[in-house]
């Protein structure tokens, strides 16, 4: 119980010096690879993720899977063996990776206008280079950027953010690994921040009913803040490309 209290110091700072409603520093870059159709690199605190998008292209490996009215979204999540303090044995294919792949797919299916690409497939690969809490959220955010880079039509941004409760009372967002370990339950939300729709919600443990709402609201606010950061990055990226081709001068 007492350990839980330590998440937020008396003067309202978290262990790493953030205030409860502050995100970790997010740095991101679009188009980091040339081979895939779209790619992005994203750092959320010390969590570092690479995302690559291929497609839309013809359905591979058996036509039977192809859908006549929509594209198949195929997600694959993996973690580099050096991404955690103790070396991982399998970079992909374990239960956790499979689960995260499915969750990622669920979030992306909600935003990709897949009805525009019947009989085709879009592959999204994400790889965690370093894990420091909030792996899933970083993957979703990176995948969004990679999809934008690939030019795949989206309904809007899909952003993800975690939130938890400090001292059993104060909701805080973007939980680091250290906080995950000593803290209580963590809520992960993937949402469409502009329309306010939630596409995925997951809890590591049960929340008390009284707290759920305020924690959820905090997490949604976090998604909105993240969208703003991603949006800026996208605009910057587009401007850079534009200026190299001379578009920017026209505006």
């Amino acid at each position: 119980m007492s350990r839980n209290r330590d998440l937020l110091s008396k003067i309202g700072l978290r262990l790493d010096g953030r205030r409860p409603d502050e995100l970790r520093r997010i740095r991101c870059k679009l188009g980091v690879f040339t081979e895939p159709d779209g790619s992005a690199y994203l750092e959320q605190g010390l969590t570092k993720v690479l995302a690559a998008v291929y497609g839309p292209h013809q359905v591979r490996g058996g036509r039977s899977k192809a859908q006549h009215d929509t594209a198949i979204i195929n997600c694959q999540f993996s973690m580099a063996v050096f991404s955690t303090t103790d070396r991982k044995k399998r970079p992909r294919g374990d239960r956790k990776s499979t689960e995260l792949s499915m969750h990622l797919q669920q979030a992306l299916e909600a935003v990709i206008k897949s009805e525009l690409y019947p009989w085709s497939q879009i592959d999204v690969y994400v790889e965690v280079l370093h894990a420091d809490g909030g792996i899933y959220t970083a993957c979703v955010n990176a995948a969004t950027l990679a999809l934008i880079d690939a030019g795949i039509p989206l309904k809007e941004y899909v952003c993800a953010c975690t939130a938890s409760l400090a001292n059993n009372d104060v909701p805080m967002i973007d939980i680091s690994h250290q906080e995950e370990i000593i803290g209580g339950p963590t809520l992960t939300v993937a949402a469409l921040p502009m329309s306010g729709k939630i596409v995925l919600m997951e809890m590591s443990q049960r929340f008390h009913m009284d707290h759920l709402e305020k924690v959820l609201n905090k997490a949604l606010q976090g998604c909105k803040d993240i969208r703003q950061i991603l949006d800026e990055a996208v605009r910057l990226h587009v401007r850079d490309i534009g200026s190299s081709t001379g578009w920017a001068n026209t505006s």
């Binding site: 520093r25 605190g45 010390l46 103790d86 420091d132 680091s176």
Partner: peptide, 22 residues
């Protein structure tokens, strides 16, 4: 809302595990 000015990594080595914290 974002007041990070400098970014420093703290390294703690113990038990041959390298822990990096923000």
């Amino acid at each position: 809302m974002f007041t990070t000015k400098v970014f420093i990594k703290k390294t703690r080595i113990g038990n041959f595990l390298k822990n990096v914290r923000e």
